[in-house]
């Protein structure tokens, strides 16, 4: 399944079919991140419940230094 993460196309194994599994796949477990799927925020509590579909556009953000 192909999705877009942070503007970059990404090919996922078929088993990676939820936001939580994507977070694990990307080794982001325990990292402070926020995720938007197709323009809608996915609350952390919903990571396991929200399924991924081919063509989904995800944004995964964190806090960085800034003024």
């Amino acid at each position: 399944m192909e999705i877009t993460v942070n503007g970059t196309p990404m090919q996922l194994p078929i088993s990676v079919n939820s936001v939580l599994l994507l977070v694990e796949h990307m080794q982001l477990v325990g990292k402070r991140i926020a995720i938007e799927r197709n323009g809608e925020i996915v609350p952390r509590s919903q990571f396991a419940a929200v399924a991924l579909s081919a063509g989904d556009r995800l944004e995964i953000v964190g806090a960085v230094g800034g003024g």
């Binding site: 942070n6 503007g7 953000v61 964190g62 230094g65």
Partner: peptide, 10 residues
């Protein structure tokens, strides 16, 4: 302290 919100580095 101010921080910016940016895409995580894949």
């Amino acid at each position: 302290v101010t921080v910016a919100i940016r895409r995580t580095n894949i």
